[in-house]
Design a protein around this nucleic acid. Structure first.
Lengths: 153, 153
DNA sequence: TGCGCTATTGCAACCTATTGCGATAGCGTG
DNA sequence: CACGCTATCGCAATAGGTTGCAATAGCGCA
């Protein structure tokens, strides 16, 4: 048993079984990461996750976290996309698929729902047969506030 | 063919003056990078550029290349965006502004012109006031060939 | 419960990219 | 043409991220 995690959320409680069903294993390291992810909200960078895991288990190794994240992405439990600096950012599922807007000037970011990008995705699919993955989409630019304020770069 | 690079292209021949006009300098290291860029076609990663510079001048230092690329981007001579792995890729101007499509399965990439994404950009501008930078756009997904062939990941 | 297969871990080395700093060298000026 | 200001260079150190490999430890099975 694993008492330390009174996981109630069915998404998280099912992870163990989903791993096993694939012949993968449920390890203390993975348990730690799941714990961190369950508490995470919105976007987190990989290094933030490493840090939070270390807060729980100081022995946490970066490589383990990165490899586990790959596994979880395979399972569809997390999604990653590349932030404005090219760093990986993870987004915890469930939740609707969405892309991201990053303001180059102030650094804030927003989510864009499927509806807003659907026309473009449809056009790409129709004209080129290219099926784009919206959850990996990250648009960089300038937000309304920064434009109004005339702020640059 | 390309002889030893008697740069004729006005874009490249003008770089020196554009640098000077800004109080910046024309150095052998920058000349080397310009030479490499002039010969480059399409997209190149930063490390490819470092390597090619080393082929011309073995003493080339990575930091110099990276810093020079920043300067050239300021001048609007190159653009960078983040490839599927999050690595920086540079694109040489001139040429129309465009985004990129990366096939997750086969790794190939294509360019998308302004027309194809304009509707989305317009919608974002109208609804959120967000001015997205198309040249920084990179969409990841699966191309027509891979979809037709039923290839996955 | 004990055994064995093999997924996973942790370490260390490596790669890409960035930054601080003293030394060097463009280039505008006199 | 020499001088001096300062942009740029090269080095070394650092950070984020990845990978190969030997050792460890889940977990299915008898």
């Amino acid at each position: 048993m694993d008492p330390p995690i009174p996981v109630v959320d069915p998404v998280w409680s099912g992870v163990r079984d989903r791993l096993r069903a694939r012949g993968l294993r449920w390890t203390p390291q993975r348990r730690t990461l799941i714990e961190v992810l369950a508490a995470a909200d919105g976007h987190v960078t990989a290094s933030e996750l490493v840090e939070r895991c270390r807060a729980i288990d100081p022995a946490t190794t970066p490589s383990t976290v990165y490899r586990t994240l790959d596994v979880l992405e395979d399972l569809g439990i997390v999604r990653h996309h590349h932030g404005p600096e090219g760093r990986e950012e993870f987004h915890v599922l469930p939740g609707s698929e969405h892309g991201h807007l990053h303001c180059r000037t102030c650094g804030r970011s927003w989510e864009v729902g499927p509806a807003e990008v659907a026309p473009m995705l449809d056009a790409l699919r129709a004209r080129r047969g290219f099926e784009a993955d919206i959850s990996h989409l990250a648009l960089v630019g300038r937000c309304a506030d920064c434009r109004a304020a005339g702020r640059r770069q």
